[in-house]
């Protein structure tokens, strides 16, 4: 009987853990840093509740509210308020979700002033209900972009989409060009779109980085493909709860077929 850890209780982690538990003979612990399952999809969706029920039914054990930090010598350092401890296991499945591309991922250069924010952060801040920005530039068309643009426009703000094709969620659409440059020393005031020798200056009070998604990686020892005893469960193309859960199940099934009783 091998002990398997799944880090990340979003839909892909839930699907993965359930499949591992069903494929027999494994003792599966599903871990998440926040105290509820569901990940970015949220805990209260009926589909998420169904996935949690299925996991429990298959015998998956949950450890919620504990963040994984380090994977070394088949031990995972788990941190929870009041309790930091090592958990031994045979294999780690990392389902830590997706993140927007950073300025560096997008080769954005220039200054580093206030007001350049990852889409995930902008989303959290907007959910406080305060009107934060009047003229936003949203870079990219990752899964966060439409939702954020809607919130900003809903509060009376103006949204320019850059490098997002021709989305319906923006007031103004600008092609991505060959390079982007942030201007402003106190707070961002312009995103400069360079296209060969031409430049176009977009005046703004916030730049939201919504390109991607890219896989989140934050457990030392489980950072790159090829890390020993690690399988990454971070499907980039699957969007929505059911497809992500399905992708998680597929990765687990593939692993069970190829590694089976021999993690």
């Amino acid at each position: 009987m091998s002990r398997l850890l799944v880090v990340g209780a979003g839909p892909s982690g839930l699907g993965c853990a359930t499949e591992l538990a069903r494929s027999g003979g494994h003792d599966v612990l599903l871990i998440d840093r926040v105290p509820v399952a569901g990940g970015e999809s949220g805990w209260d969706k009926p589909e998420v509740r169904d996935l949690v029920r299925a996991a429990t039914g298959a015998g998956v054990e949950f450890r919620l509210g504990a963040a994984a930090a380090v994977w070394t010598d088949r031990r995972l350092l788990l941190t929870a308020p009041g309790a930091i401890r090592w958990v031994e296991a045979d294999h780690l499945f990392y389902a830590g979700g997706l993140r927007p591309a950073t300025a560096s991922d997008l080769n954005i250069v220039g200054e580093r002033p206030a007001g350049v924010l990852p889409a995930t952060v902008a989303d959290h801040l907007l959910s406080t209900g305060v009107r934060l920005w009047k003229r936003a530039v949203v870079v990219g068309d990752g899964p966060w972009a439409p939702h954020i643009a809607e919130r900003i426009r809903g509060a009376g703000g103006h949204v320019t989409a850059v490098g997002a094709g021709s989305p319906t969620w923006a007031d103004q659409v600008v092609a991505g060009g060959t390079g982007l440059e942030v201007l402003g020393s106190d707070r961002v005031h312009t995103l400069r779109v360079v296209d060969g020798t031409r430049v176009r200056d977009l005046v703004c009070d916030v730049v939201i980085l919504a390109s991607g998604p890219l896989p989140n990686r934050n457990v030392d020892g489980a950072l790159a493909e090829g890390a020993p005893h690690v399988t990454f469960v971070q499907p980039l193309d699957a969007r929505g709860i059911a497809p992500r859960a399905q992708a998680g199940r597929a990765i687990a099934a593939h692993w069970a077929r190829t590694n089976g009783g021999n993690p």
Binding site: A114, G115, V130
Partner: peptide, 13 residues
């Protein structure tokens, strides 16, 4: 909105 992002600029504008 008023929390400082950098020492010079706030999160909100």
């Amino acid at each position: 909105d008023a929390v400082r992002h950098t020492v010079r600029g706030t999160v909100g504008s």
